[in-house]
Design a protein around this nucleic acid. Structure first.
Length: 633
RNA sequence: GCCUUGGUAGCAUAGUGGUAAUGCGCCACCUUGGUAAGGUGGAGAUCGCGGGUUCAAGUCCCGCCCAAGGCUCCA
């Protein structure tokens, strides 16, 4: 049976003239609104298992009916969908049965007359699900199989079939549906559910969106394109620190930093493929003749591949690693954008490694896998705060079982496995570390892919020991994932911790203010000024506003400031500080954890905690009284 | 692109047909303080835009614009 579904504003049809197989009818014309129109061709093979076909067709129809939210259904016999039609008698029987079945489920359903020449007009709604087709197949014997096709042009490329498993530390591959997640692996379960269902309807704004505004990190910019955000000084500081960190970590790893253009010609043959695959997702520059002639890059791949093509590379130089902190652009559909999680303009740390062969690629892959773990740990995510996904083709797995098992062992916990029966896009193996947020949505942070296709496409080659030109294997790696996405994950993590009674905060090295000094009265300001030089090299500010001490303490808490020191007569006299340490305080008691220490002790402690991490100075006046508010209140 | 919700002072919101309200922030004054919001006063709004209904519209109707969330998607 062939089915074509069109979610329509309305359909009008009129039976004009009988064919010789026409059924008798009462009304010859009809108009139906807010309707899911189902064009149906009943096929010869359907006669073999009428009940099955009717059940299956009803099930599909109801599912689509509910998904698109139509109000009623019209079944419209449409012989032209198939060249192997069933007999008219059987067709009518099946159509009637389908009608009755749907009717029995409480759906308002009409059937257009069978065997008439009919005129019709309908208006298709035009949303992504408004046009769908289904084929219900009856195979030999009782065996049955469904084939699903989508009519959208973008999906013309056939997707490889994929299967989800969980692999445990012992290398056992368990179908994900059968895995006992238990309380221990609740997060992994959420991740799997998100991955397999790809949806999770929630009706509230993600917590990080409110936080990014309130903490003066970032905000929407109504005058730009959606997904292009503004970053306030504190947000820009955090972003820059993360960038500094990734930059130096990757440099240490041995990658050479480069810069490549952000826009490219649509005419380049290797780039054309990409653009044609995702035409609606490019920011294009319209050139002569109203046609796009340049587009903005969605990652640093092109730039680095085009550079690699012109390099002369000997096997002795390999692996060759190139890195770029790449501002990237993807014109995601309006509804896909969410706060800092999914943007149209974002900063993608993008490293490519050219390897001699698969053996070297695997060695590098494992190192970069460990690099990703280290990077996430430094940014503030321990391994139990993200979930590992490893995805590969069946062929790759058969040839590299122990390699995969090794990766799982390094993760130290069960990981989600996706197995493709054939190669999907350009890679044979990839991993991601995924963060699951407060609403149960998963997003990839670190990721590495083994690319076996682009060296050919971009004509990248190296010379091997025997003097012959060869194609390298290319690793794509983003050790942290998009910088903005790291910020999103940090905010969501803080929110989740708050829910559990932990005071939310950023890692110390990313906190805009690391130490806040609060004078009890104006006369203590002079003393504070005198100790400031001793705290240089830290981000220290002073709440010199004319407010009560209580108010200042509260405001410091609302800003998630890690160290808050109150200074009054006692401290001036004893030359000490009364420091409230946020990380040692609890959210459920109103009392902060206070500690007496002198200036040097405080400085030593903070410096110890941020050692090895990048530092930037406070981007705002150290006096709170001089600061403007970026977000209104 | 589609669906849903929303657009009222710098920000967050209340306001179901009759004088635009509250909190935060801002300004001024009082208070010079000891660990999670001190007090008083003041300024600040063509209620997203355009049309319609009505004696009267922030409120009801129509059209448009903008935003967020969801669907879909994520190279």
């Amino acid at each position: 049976m062939q089915l074509l579904f069109i979610h329509s504003d309305y359909i009008e049809y009129e039976a004009k003239e009988k064919t010789k197989v026409a059924e008798e009818i009462e009304t010859s014309s009809e108009r139906v609104e807010e309707v899911l129109v189902v064009f149906i061709a009943v096929e010869r093979e359907d006669e073999r298992n009428v009940n099955y076909v009717v059940d299956k067709a009803a099930e599909e129809t109801i599912s689509i009916f509910n998904k698109v939210g139509a109000e009623r259904i019209v079944l419209y016999p449409y012989a032209h969908l198939s060249s192997e039609l069933a007999s008219p008698d059987k067709s009518v029987e099946i159509l009637r049965a389908l009608h009755d079945k749907l009717h029995a489920q409480g759906v308002e359903v009409k059937r257009a007359p069978f065997g008439w020449y009919k005129s019709f007009t309908l208006r298709c709604k035009g949303h992504p699900l408004s046009e769908l087709s289904r084929k219900i197949k009856v195979l030999e014997g009782a065996e049955v199989k469904e084939v699903e096709t989508e009519s959208k042009a973008l999906e013309a490329e056939e997707k490889a079939e994929s299967h989800f498993f969980i692999m445990d530390g012992g290398g056992n591959l368990i179908a994900a549906d059968d895995f006992e997640f238990g309380a221990e692996h609740e997060n992994l379960k959420q991740f799997f559910v998100y991955e397999s269902e790809k949806r999770r309807a929630v009706d509230r704004v993600p917590p990080h969106v409110e936080l990014m505004k309130r903490l003066e990190i970032a905000d929407y910019e109504p005058s730009s394109d959606p997904g292009n955000l503004r970053f306030y000084p504190k947000g820009e500081l955090i972003k820059t620190l993360l960038e500094d960190y990734v930059r130096s970590t990757v440099a240490e790893y041995g990658a050479a930093e480069v810069e490549t253009p952000i826009m490219y010609s649509v005419k380049h043959p290797a780039l054309k493929d990409y653009i044609e695959r995702f035409p609606a997702r490019q920011y294009s520059m319209i050139g002569k003749g109203n046609k796009p002639d340049l587009f903005l890059r969605f990652a640093a791949c092109f730039g680095q591949f085009l550079m690699s093509k012109d390099m002369s590379i000997s096997y002795k130089n390999m692996p060759v690693k190139m890195f770029e902190l790449a501002p990237s652009f993807r014109k995601e559909k309006r509804g896909e954008l969410v706060g800092l999680r999914r943007l149209r303009k974002f900063t993608m740390p993008d490293m490519h490694t050219l390897c001699r062969d698969m053996e070297e690629a695997l060695k590098e892959f494992k190192m970069q896998y460990e690099l990703g773990m280290r990077v996430l740990d430094d940014i503030g995510f321990s391994p139990d705060e993200y979930e590992v996904a490893i995805r590969f083709t069946k062929d790759f797995y058969d040839a590299n079982k122990t390699f995969i098992e090794d990766l799982v062992r390094i993760a130290g916990k069960p990981v989600l496995i996706e197995l493709w029966d054939q190669r999907f896009f350009y890679f044979v193996l990839k991993f991601e570390f995924n963060f699951v947020d407060a609403l149960g949505k998963a997003s990839a942070l670190s990721t590495v892919q083994i690319d076996v296709e682009n060296a050919e496409r971009y004509d990248i080659k190296y010379v091997d020991a025997s003097g012959k030109e060869k194609r390298p294997i290319i690793l794509h790696c983003s050790p942290s994932g998009a910088i903005e996405r790291c910020m999103y994950a940090l905010l969501e993590k803080a929110y989740l911790e708050k829910e559990r009674g932990i005071l939310p905060m950023f890692p110390l090295w990313l906190s805009p203010t690391q130490v806040r000094l609060i004078p009890i009265a104006e006369r203590h300001l002079e003393y504070i000024e005198s100790i400031l030089p001793a705290l240089s090299g830290l981000r220290v500010d002073v709440d010199d506003r004319e407010e009560t001490v209580s108010k200042k303490i509260r405001d410091a808490g609302r800003e998630w400031i890690p160290y808050v020191a109150v200074i009054g007569d006692k401290e001036v006299e004893k030359k000490t500080l009364s420091v409230t340490i946020r990380s040692e305080s609890h959210g459920n008691t109103k009392k902060g954890q206070k500690q007496e220490m002198d200036v040097l002790e405080l400085k030593t402690r903070v410096e110890g905690e941020i050692r090895g991490k990048p530092f930037r100075r406070l981007p705002l006046s150290y006096k709170l009284s001089e600061r403007v508010k970026f977000v209104g209140g």
